[in-house]
């Protein structure tokens, strides 16, 4: 079972995180202060840590810096109400692996944790990605659904690659926007949906069972 340490001073938020992550099969330990969080993270092995940026005793940034300095490289998802890009960059620079702005949809957090965990496992240098009968040739940049050949535009290729690398887990619109175009703000419009719809038309022809599903209020999941 995947073990998560949640360092969060707000009890309600912490409970929600714990409830949500439990439904995704995580085992969650809660630390209400930065000091407690540091102690827990240093003494027990965790697979992933969620860390509130604003804590009453030790600042979230200091917690990350300290953990990294003491050689603990557990993936850390920073959570903060500060959405300024500066804050984000500071969080990532201090050693955070990803940054999530409050308020967030719990699904989004779970999705990000899954992606972080997967990133941890060194992906073998593959030349092909495969999800059920969907295959993506990373060198030829061509996809196949069964025997059917699918031509992709560069954007569709990047989008599909991201979805396939994170198959069977929910990826949000913001995550897609970040991964495909490299900008880390909420696009706030339906542009991502239109791209996904376009890709879906190509990889999910009518005669095949649909692979790409929309998760209401959260994002998309492939496979």
């Amino acid at each position: 079972m995947t073990r998560v340490l949640t360092i969060e001073d707000d009890e309600i938020t912490a409970k929600e995180i714990m409830a949500e992550l439990s439904t995704h099969g995580f085992e969650v330990t809660w630390a209400a202060t930065g000091r407690d969080g540091l102690a827990q993270a240093s003494s027990q092995p965790f697979d992933v840590i969620t860390l509130d940026r604003m804590l009453p005793d030790i600042d979230g940034l200091e917690v990350v810096t300290f953990l990294r300095a003491s050689g603990i490289d557990t993936p850390i998802l920073m959570i903060s109400a500060l959405s300024d890009v500066d804050e984000r960059i500071r969080g990532l620079r201090a050693g955070g692996d990803d940054y999530l702005t409050k308020p967030f949809v719990p699904d989004e957090m779970a999705a990000r944790l899954e992606v972080m965990l997967r990133r941890r496992k060194p992906a073998a240098s593959q030349s092909k990605l495969k999800v059920q009968d969907l295959e993506l040739d990373l060198i030829a940049r061509i996809a196949h659904r069964g025997t059917q050949k699918i031509r992709l535009s560069p954007t569709e290729f990047r989008l599909l690659e991201y979805l396939m690398r994170n198959s069977s887990q929910v990826v949000t619109r913001t995550m897609i926007f970040e991964a495909v175009w490299g900008y880390s703000f909420d696009p706030g419009t339906n542009v991502v949906d239109v791209h996904v719809t376009g890709l879906r038309r190509k990889i999910d022809p009518e005669e095949f069972p649909p692979l790409l599903r929309t998760v209401r209020g959260a994002g998309y999941v492939l496979g």
Binding site: T13, M54, A81, L82, K102, P103, V105, P106, G217
Partner: peptide, 21 residues
Amino acid sequence: ADSVAHDLRTPLTHLRTRLNR
């Protein structure tokens, strides 16, 4: 403003999460 962000957005998120549940 930062405090407002912290204080006001959190209950709103709670509300959303509960509705979701």
